[in-house]
Design a binder for these strands. Structure first.
Lengths: 328, 328
DNA sequence: TACATTTATGCTCAAAGTGAGTATTAGTAG
DNA sequence: CTACTAATACTCACTTTGAGCATAAATGTA
């Protein structure tokens, strides 16, 4: 006898504007399916949630079509790039289960759009790094990181001697405290570590205890949505390197500096301008249009355009940002 | 009103032996849940299927645990490395739907094990390249590829003039016929292209027509399992590059040649021996044990071992096979 | 024992790619 | 005309890669 399972869809809809990565969030208080009984943990908490929609096997031929349809309907925008992220089904991930609701399995998608086009009631763009502040290294080591390291040190010490070594090892791998240095791709691993260590408030919410007993980091999201966001950010960072996906996030004509800012925003790293330029030009991903952008304040920048043909010519390499030239 | 959805799990269980990548398959005739009414398309066809199991929300706390449990139960082996691949839910992907069955959503996983330990009734190891013969370039251009190119040319020509260009472009990207050259990672893209072009027999089976009208390539699998296999092979090829996953597939002690053979088997490429050695040694992924393997036939090879510590020290790079040194 | 054979391992070298600068150019604002 | 700003160009040491040649340590055979 198989108990009930319900299938939903979640979307991490990313855009970049003003050199910040943005994620589209909705206010869960506006979502009709959340019963009031769940109390301050969800409703009334003002927590941001990712937009989500149902998967109806009677209507929807494929998951991706279902997603496209309701995102289109909710945001009045065509999303270009869509990719399946991960399927979440852990017990207890949806608090409605506690009220006798069905097990909710969510298939999460990543969507990339050009910001500005979207403006919907009950939804807004928020800075991704508000939720994951330790991920933004563009201004050097994030402020939060020292405090975070201390809190993690506490967590390491809170275990028996035997496990401390393992915990320390994991912390060092995730946050690059060892010889390894920072690895921008391990976004999810870091979030999950912080969750386990009780350093994000979702940990306490899931325990049914809205008051964290100790420091917590970053703005929380409803349900496990911050975990999903972390999955999405990690994915886009990885993808940047080997697929030309940045171009989904910018206008058709752009300056190389503009392109670099988008890459920096997503990767959370500052890049070396001249080398970035060399990398992008030599990759053959772009072509100059001959026209100039003179809103720069200094010498005008040439406007470039993505060469769609590269998909045919080469191995469509992406801008190699994270592996590529750092710092300025 | 939401129609019924059932959630299942599929596993692409990979191993490497005798320099061949193997996938664990079961005989779908032995699966009780397949009704006879489905006829020659599935039952009695002798088609191989991927092992699959149910997800029962009443029992299973997480998808991964559910998967581990029934794989353990079916194969009597602990699988070490497990990773979620993709969730498949397209309408019509399970032929039981046609008989009024529920929509079946499958969460597919990739598992890596050391072969030899598994021996279960109704299941056997099969060569991955039996199903995807065009993916094996170790002996140079696969034989099938010329015939395949001709068949694809036919498909291109079968469309109206306007679409031909697009079709040709897609074929060139996928199979590297253009300037691009072969890209080992696009396993799924290639399978999907062949499916669309009617060049795999699943296309005809799904049409309800068991006799293909034209050439088809590779051994078929039941349902959409060959697509899932392609997803898995593509994933492991990608992962090889940047995570030290090969070591999940080999014994604790190994020679560098043995390691190379495993990488070659999965990547489908022949590598340059001396450079592979240099790459692996310099990566710090392995350490010599001082002991020798003298079953080589020539000079004995030193036995190496994976250094688990690297996970802490560096960015755990993987053997960079595909990007790395080719040919011999 | 000397020697061919086989495979492992070591070394070299040119070409390409990368990190980190300095230098020059073409605008704007005063 | 000049100071300032940002874009673009060029340089240079260093590392990584692709490809091959050379040597080492086993085996089997004349």
């Amino acid at each position: 006898m198989t108990a009930r399972t319900e299938v939903g869809l979640n979307a991490v809809i990313l855009a970049v504007s003003d050199q910040q990565p943005r994620v589209l969030t909705v206010d869960p208080e506006q979502l009709p399916e959340i019963p009031d009984a769940l109390g301050p943990g969800i409703k009334g908490s003002g927590l941001a949630a990712l937009p989500s929609g149902p998967f109806d096997p009677a209507q929807d031929r494929t998951l991706e079509l279902a997603l496209r349809n309701w995102v289109q309907w909710q945001t009045k925008t065509d999303i270009g790039y869509v990719e399946q992220l991960y399927t979440f089904a852990d017990q207890g991930r949806d608090p409605r289960e506690r009220l006798g609701g069905p097990r909710v399995l969510s298939v999460a998608y990543l969507a990339l759009i050009k910001e500005g086009t979207v403006d919907v009631a009950h939804s807004r763009w928020q800075d991704c790094y508000a939720f994951l502040p330790w991920e933004d290294w563009r201004g050097g080591k994030p402020e939060a990181i020292e405090e975070l390291a201390a809190a993690l040190e506490g967590w390491i010490g809170a275990d028996g001697r035997a496990n401390r070594r393992q915990r320390r090892e994991r912390v060092e791998i995730c946050f690059g405290f060892g010889d390894a240095g920072w690895d921008g791709y391990q976004v999810l691993e870091r979030y999950e570590l912080l969750y386990e260590a009780g350093l994000v408030s979702e940990y306490w919410l899931d325990l049914g205890d809205p008051k964290p007993r100790g420091p917590v980091f970053g703005a929380p999201m409803a349900y496990d949505h911050r975990r999903i966001l972390a999955t999405g950010l990690g994915r886009i960072r990885g993808k940047l390197r080997y697929r030309p996906v940045v171009f989904e996030l910018i206008e058709r004509d752009f300056t190389l500096m503009g392109l670099q800012h988008v890459v920096e925003a997503l990767s959370g790293l500052r890049l070396h301008k001249q080398n970035f330029r060399r990398l992008v030009e030599r990759s053959g991903l772009v072509e100059g249009t001959g026209r100039l952008d003179n809103r720069t304040g200094g010498r005008p920048a040439e406007l470039f355009r993505f060469r769609r043909e590269v998909l045919r010519e080469r191995r469509a390499p992406g801008v190699g940002a994270l592996a590529g030239p750092r710092a300025d």
